[in-house]
Computed example of a mutant assay.
Amino acid sequence: MIKKSQNKYVFKIITLSMVFGFVACGEDYVPKPKAYLRLEYPKADYTKSQLDLPFSFEMNKLATKIKSKNLSGTTTSYGLDIEYPTLKGTIFLTYKAIDNKKENFMLFLKDAENLTQKHMIKADEIPVTVYENKEKRVYGLFSEVKGDVASPAQFYITDSINHFLTGSLYFYAKPNYDSILPAANYLQKDMKHIMETVEWK
C-alpha cells in the first residue's frame, strides 16, 4: 500500500512528465533572421549642374549638398562631393585634365582600375558595364561591387584626349550589403545618369 507522501511524489512526477511531453511535441524554436526596413525613395528628378567645372552633367535634386574643390590650385584637377543626407551616401567625383598626353591618360586609367581592384578581396563579384557615346565623345566603364565593401560602385569616363572623370559611391555607415542595397541601387542609377549626361566643355 502506497503512503500519502509517496502518492504526492508520484503525482508530481507524472504531472511534470506530461508537461515536458507537451512542450517537446511543439515546434522547435528558430530565431528570426535580422530584418531590414523596406525603403521607398522618390522618383529621381534631374537638373543640369551649374558649376564652374570643365564639364557639366545632370544630377538628382535629392542631392542637397554639393561641395566643389580645386585639387591642384590650377584648372587641371577638381573634386566634387554630391551628398545625399537622407540616404547617408555620397558620390565622389574627381576630374583630371589629360592635356593631350598619353602618359597622363594611361596613369589616370591605371588609378581608376586600381580603385576597383582594391575591393576585390571583400567583393562577392564585380559586374562591369562598358559605356560609349561617340556623339558626345564619352567612353568609360561602370563597375558594381557586390558584397560588404566600402564602395559598392565606381565609374570612369573620358574622351581619351583632354578629360578624365572618375566617380565612386560611399556610405556613412559600416558596409552591410543587404542593408544598404536599396540605397545603393538608387544611387547607382544616379551615377549612370551622370555618365550618360556628361558634356565636356
Results as ranks from 00 to 15, higher is better:
93 L>T: 03
141 L>I: 10
73 G>Y: 06
26 G>V: 09
168 S>Q: 11
23 V>T: 13
157 I>F: 01
13 I>A: 11
3 K>C: 09
8 K>L: 14
26 G>C: 11
93 L>Y: 01
109 L>V: 05
194 I>A: 07
174 K>M: 13
57 F>W: 05
14 I>C: 02
105 F>M: 12
190 D>F: 08
33 P>E: 13
183 A>I: 02
102 K>E: 15
197 T>M: 07
38 R>A: 12
179 S>M: 09
198 V>P: 02
175 P>H: 04
66 I>N: 04
53 L>K: 06
2 I>V: 13
19 V>Q: 03
117 Q>T: 12
65 K>E: 15
23 V>L: 15
110 K>M: 15
98 I>G: 00
155 F>E: 01
1 M>F: 10
70 N>E: 10
108 F>W: 01
6 Q>H: 10
165 L>V: 05
161 I>L: 15
94 T>E: 13
28 D>K: 14
114 N>W: 05
46 Y>R: 07
139 Y>H: 05
161 I>P: 06
86 T>C: 06
168 S>V: 04
97 A>F: 02
91 I>E: 03
59 M>I: 15
185 N>Y: 03
199 E>V: 12
148 D>M: 01
112 A>Y: 00
115 L>I: 06
15 T>H: 06
39 L>C: 07
46 Y>C: 08
65 K>F: 10
183 A>S: 06
197 T>A: 06
37 L>N: 12
182 P>G: 00
153 A>F: 01
93 L>Q: 01
132 E>A: 12
193 H>C: 09
30 V>N: 08
98 I>Q: 00
161 I>Q: 14
18 M>D: 08
30 V>S: 11
28 D>W: 11
103 E>S: 09
196 E>F: 06
2 I>W: 08
158 T>Q: 03
43 K>N: 07
117 Q>M: 13
7 N>T: 13
133 N>Q: 04
106 M>N: 15
153 A>W: 00
96 K>R: 12
146 K>I: 11
59 M>V: 14
62 L>S: 14
22 F>Q: 11
200 W>M: 02
94 T>R: 11
117 Q>L: 14
93 L>I: 03
4 K>A: 13
132 E>N: 07
133 N>E: 07
17 S>H: 04
